[in-house]
Every structure is written in C-alpha cells, then in structure tokens.
Design a protein around this nucleic acid. Structure first.
Length: 647
RNA sequence: GCCAUUGUAGCUCAGUUGGCCAGAGCGGCUGAUUUGUAAUCAGCGGGUCGGGGGUUCGAAUCCCUCCAAUGGCUCCA
C-alpha cells in the first residue's frame, strides 16, 4: 500500500503528500504565510480542525480567519470558553451542551442557583482571561468506558447521559483547551486566542434538558460572537434598529391597540386606528374572495361540547381551549376554530357535485387558551380574528383548489411587498398514527402526494417537514420573519380528509352515488392580530396610503387660514379620505414634526400663498415638499393610489 | 405551564446603604405669539410607586404572595 496521498486544491491543481499529513503541514507547504493565516480546513466538503490528519486522497481547502465558515466554529469555541469560565467561577456547575447558533452560541448549565445577568461581567472577564492565554484546542479520541468513567468521577452526569446515547459507531472525541476539556464533535480553531474579544453575553434563559418539558430546567446563557469589533457593533446596532420596529412599541405610539390587566392577558383591545387596518384587510379579503367564488357565513362564538368531540378537537386540543361553561346542564366551549361550524353549514343542505366546490369564508373571532408564557404582543394572543375559510371539493377538483389558495397567498404577499417567506409542506409521522394523527395510513400518503403534485405543477418552491402535519391532514405553512428576527407562521393551508366523514358530509356524484368531499382549511392572512403585528414591523409603522389609519393631516400655517382649511378638510372627508387637521397653536415646523413622528404619509400645508392662488401645498413622508397642487388633481391621484393599493 | 428579569405620571426614565411633602424630559391643558417644510415662549395640572400582606419608629426601596409584561424553553387546530 502506498504511503502517499494525492491532495487536490480548489483551483484544480493537485499535489502528492505523505499519508497522514496534517492540514497545517499542507498549508505550510503551499506557503508559510498561508499556514500562519490558516485556521481550519475543508476536506471533501467537511470543515475540520487545521491539524487534522489526512489519510486519503482528498479535495482540500485551506480556510483563513476571514472566511464566513469560520464564524460558526468561532462561536462554538466561544461556548467552550464560556463553559470553562463558568466552571472556574462556579465549581458547583455541570455542563451539558453548548452549540453555535445564528449570530452566536449558548451553553446550558445545570446548577442549583440559576445564573443571572449580574454574573455576566465576571464570566466575560474570565473568558477574556482564558482567551488571552491562547491555549490550543487539542483533540483526543477516547473509548466510551474511559469517557464515562472520567465524567462520572467529575460529577458530570449529563455528559455521561449524552455519551451513553451516542451511536455506537460514532467516534468519541474530547477537546482540550489547556486543562479544561469537553466532550465535543468539533471542529475547533487552532487555539483560544483566535476567538478574539468580539463577543458579548446577551441573556439568560431557562431551557429544559433535551428540550423536554418533563425534564429538569437548566440555565442557558446566550452570547453573540464575531470576528472583529466592527462586526459585533454592526450586529448590536442591528438589534437596536430592530427594537425600533417592534410592533408593541409602534402599536402604542400609533394608538393601534392596547392591552389592559383588567380585560385579561392576551386579549387585545383594538383602538380606532388599529380597527381601520383590520377593516381594510377585510375589505381586501372580501374583494379577493368574492372574485374567487367564496360565500361568506357567520357562526356563533360558543358551542356545545359534542361538536368538538365529534371533530376530534376536544381530544387533541382541550388543554388549549378555554374551560367549558355550564349552560342548562350542557357544556359549552368558546370556539377555538371555525371548521366544525362550517361543516355544519355544509351539512345543512343536501349537496350535489354540481354545487362543488363550495367555499365558505368567515371573518370571526376565535379564542384559544394559549399558555401564559406563550403570549407575545399581538403575535400570540388568546382572542384572534381570522380571515378563515373552508373549501369543500371533489378529489378531481382538489389540486386546482389547493393551488388557487396558495396563489392567493402569493397575491397578497405581493400587495404587501412581502418578499422573504418560505412555504413548508408539513407531513405526518407514521409512528404517531392513531395518536397525534388520524389512523388512515393510506389516505395520508395519498393526500400528501396530491398536495405535493399540486405544488410541483404550480411551480411553487417548498420544503418538506415530516411530523408537523395537522391531526387531520397535511398542511402548507408559510413562514415569515419579523423585524426582530423572530419566525412566524403567517398563512396556513390545510387538507382535511378525515373530519368530513365524521360529520357525514356528502354529495351526490354524477352516477347518483354518495361521496365524501375533501376539505381545505385556509387562512391566508393568518390571524389579523399576527398579520398586523407583522405588518407593523414590516413597514416600521409607515403603512402604505391605503392602510394608513390617518392618511393625511392639514396644517394651517396660522390660525388665519383655519376656515380655508376646514373647507378642504370637508371636501377630502367627503371623498372618503381619512384625515385630520392640526389647528394647534403651534408653528408650522412643529406641526410637520408631529406629523412625521406620527408617521402620517401626507401633509397638506395651507398659508397665504395657497389661499390666494386656490391651491394646496403637499409634503409627503420620505419625499418632502412636492410644491403647490390643484386640489381636484390631487384628489384624483390620491384616490387612484388608494384604490389600487399601491405600496 | 417552566426558568430568569422587570413593573415609579399618558410615554421615556431618575430616585445612593430604608429617612425631609416622590423627581425630570416629552405629551396634555391654559395664555401670549400668528408663524412657510422636523421642536416659539411662559404658566398649570397629572402618580393607590402593579395589587394585597408582612418586617420596621419609618418602605418606591427589605421579605412573602398574587397579577402583568419581557427574554428564553416547551406548545401551536
């Protein structure tokens, strides 16, 4: 057997080396200065330690500190250093896991007394100390017995559990940094000094061991880490900017909604300004759905328990429903969703294939008992308004209907300028049939295939997520990201092949036989609460004209022009424009400033010149002074802008 | 629900180890000014210090408890 191997570089050149050469040696062979800058290597696509031994012919890339792929490793290094710092300062702490994540890292610690942010300064200082020592990250491969003995002796029982659960064929590696060591898959940078000083501990949080709420709660410390201070500052600045877009802050400032302790948590009060936005969204939905052949319906807010027993919601979601109330000896529930009611509307008349598809839509309020810790501004609430609908169709009609719904989302997204989204096809998990999912193995596969085909035929991009389906069928969730970087399911579109038959829903087909329809559940704007919360952050409160609660403000330059302003005000009001007049005893500059802060898109400024020439001066947010305009022309243009829902 | 943090005027925040009638800026109201594209000046009002209980001669400050918000974990028809 040859003791030479062939290494190919990204530029296509290759060279022969001794077997078991290290990445560092290869880099040094290319040039000593490259070896100096190198921190990692990529062998056949896998990132490895710089000092890894190369045993076979490989494609090798030397990675320098400035490469993007370094960040993840650097963050992981930082987690190790934090763990060492914590154990040095608080010896009664057990370490568990500490991965790199987006923008940073975390480490979960087990300690009787949880850490607080007050501990951050001393931990950070200790980390700087460890880093400045510049200890090398050194990898050793241990046997399971050795590792278990070692960690047991050290009192690291979580590590022992992790080791026991590792697959037998997986190599068990230990990384040293000076004296301290951790069980770790790697890779790591050559030494702690490469971490630098551009990191910061961010927050503490509780986290269940292995993510299971029946397990004990650990303390997680989150940190962020970057290659240099400039990157760190940029990130911290980005967070600060995101905070300014926070829908809770803007919602209060723009008087869109509020919460009140005496009303109850998670129960938003929609103020007049916010209600305007809801109304505009419903107007849009109504127009869209009317064109798409939907019929609107209305159903009650409370319903007897038997309906939810039949639908299966009670057995699946009782914990997330408000507790039942007793009415005349019957149990009634606040409705958590509309589908059973819509099924009842479907069932209220005999149906034939000629009527299908039947599309029932409802703008109603549903109530869900979200656990207190889940509540979050408007994004997660207990009373929610929905643009909900259920489509009943034949199997032949299914693909077309399903795709039409998906395209409806995308049309909406275009209107709102939502460009970053991801469609996720959630599938069942056959292990959980009969438990989490209705026990219809063949129907699951068949329906999932139908959905997949529809998406492919429609040319839509999607990713598949196993084990995330609704209990009655597969679904498409559309994920979006808020300004604060949080991920949300905005739109959802679910197939239901199970519940219609439980409700004995049927139609007479062409050959006069009774058939069960398929049902599509869809809420393309999610809940109004979440959607508006998202829009606030998406637009940073600067809504397009058609959605702005206050579309314009009239600013008289002095009280002398108030009368003229009132005639313009009345005229615009008659045209259906939402506006106000700022006749405070203030200078024009102050009124403009107020309007800018209030995020009012248009200001109409009236002084002596305007009155004399019978015109208006217009100033627009982001555009500034547009000069003098004829009122009739202005109205015509504005009405067109509003009706076409321009961004 | 779990872990942690936080809760002072409509908003943003001060309030040293418990100690004079709890403060500021912005907003609001009143008056003066009659104003040309992001803040005119002056005066005035506004607080059960999240609720309740306790320790103390004395609590916004310390302790207990409840409520709510925030950051995560778990969950999401």
């Amino acid at each position: 057997m040859s003791n030479k191997i062939n290494i190919t570089f990204p530029d296509g050149n290759s060279k022969e080396f001794n077997k078991n050469v290290t990445g560092y040696e290869v880099a040094y062979d290319i040039s000593p200065s490259l070896a100096k800058q190198a921190v990692l290597i990529e062998i056949n696509g896998d990132i490895k330690d710089l000092h890894s031994i190369i045993e076979h012919d490989s494609i090798l890339k030397i990675i320098k500190k400035d490469a993007d792929s370094v960040l993840e490793v650097l963050r992981h290094d930082c987690a190790h250093v934090m763990a060492e710092a914590v154990q040095e300062l608080f010896p009664d702490t057990q370490v568990t896991i500490g991965p790199a994540i987006d923008n940073g890292f975390y480490y979960d610690f087990a300690r009787k007394q949880p850490f607080t942010t007050d501990d951050f300064e001393s931990i950070e200082n200790k980390m700087h100390e460890i880093i400045s020592k510049g200890s090398e990250f050194r990898r050793e491969v241990w046997t399971r017995e050795k590792a278990i003995d070692f960690f047991k002796q050290k009192g690291e029982f979580y590590k022992v559990e992790i080791i026991k659960d590792l697959p037998d064929d997986e190599e068990l590696s230990i990384y040293f940094q000076g004296e301290w060591l951790d069980l770790c898959r790697g890779p790591h940078l050559p030494s702690t000094k490469h971490i630098g000083k551009s990191f910061k501990l961010m927050k503490v949080a509780g986290a269940y061991w292995r993510g299971n709420e029946n397990n004990e709660m650990l303390t997680r410390i989150y940190g962020t880490a970057w290659r240099n201070d400039k990157e760190l500052r940029k990130y911290l600045n980005m967070l600060k900017e995101a905070e300014k877009r926070d829908h809770r802050k803007i919602g209060r400032e723009m008087k869109l909604f509020s919460f009140d302790d005496e009303v109850g948590s998670g129960l938003p009060l929609w103020l007049p300004n916010g209600t305007i936005i809801i109304d505009e969204l419903e107007k849009l939905a109504k127009e869209t759905e009317t064109k798409a052949g939907y019929d609107r319906v209305k159903t009650p807010h409370i319903t007897k328990s038997s309906l939810y027993e039949k639908s299966g919601h009670l057995s699946h979601y009782e914990d997330s429903m408000f507790p039942a109330m007793d009415v005349d000896g019957n149990k009634y529930y606040l409705k958590p969703m509309n589908c059973p009611h819509h099924h009842k509307i479907y069932a209220s008349l005999p149906r034939t294939y000629k009527e299908l598809p039947i599309r029932l839509s409802e703008y109603g309020t549903c109530y869900r008992y979200e656990k207190s810790g889940q509540l979050f501004g408007l994004m997660r609430v207990r009373s929610m308004q929905m643009n909900d609908a259920h489509i009943y169709c034949t199997e032949e009609q299914f693909k077309g209907e399903f795709l039409a719904v998906c395209n409806m989302y995308l049309e909406y997204f275009k209107i709102f300028g939502i460009e970053k989204y991801e469609m996720r096809l959630s599938l069942h998990d056959k292990e959980k049939l009969g438990d989490k999912y209705v026990d219809e193995p063949e129907l699951w596969i068949k329906t999932e295939n139908l959905v997949r085909e529809a998406l492919v035929e429609g040319g839509l991009n999607f990713t598949e997520i196993p084990g995330e389906a609704a209990f009655y069928g597969p679904k498409i969730d559309v994920q979006v990201w808020s300004a604060i970087g949080r991920e949300f399911t905005l739109a959802t579109n679910q197939v239901d092949f199970a519940i219609p038959s439980r409700f004995d829903l049927s139609y007479i087909d062409k050959s006069n036989k009774s058939q069960v329809p398929l049902c599509i559940h869809r809420a393309p704007l999610g809940t109004h609460e979440r959607f508006i919360g998202f829009l606030i952050e998406h637009f940073a409160g600067n809504f397009p004209l058609w959605l702005s609660p206050v579309q314009m403000v009239i600013i008289p330059i002095s009280e002398k022009f108030n009368d003229y302003c009132m005639t313009i005000f009345s005229r615009l009001k008659l045209e259906g424009i939402r506006l106000k007049i700022d006749n405070r005893n203030e200078k024009m500059g102050a009124k403009i400033r107020t309007a800018e802060i209030d995020k009012i898109p248009i200001m109409i400024i009236i002084g002596e010149n305007e009155v004399n020439n019978n015109v208006i001066s217009v100033r627009r947010k982001f555009q500034g002074d547009l000069g003098k305009l004829d009122l009739d022309n202005f109205i015509e243009n504005i009405k067109l802008e509003i009706s076409s829902r321009n961004l």
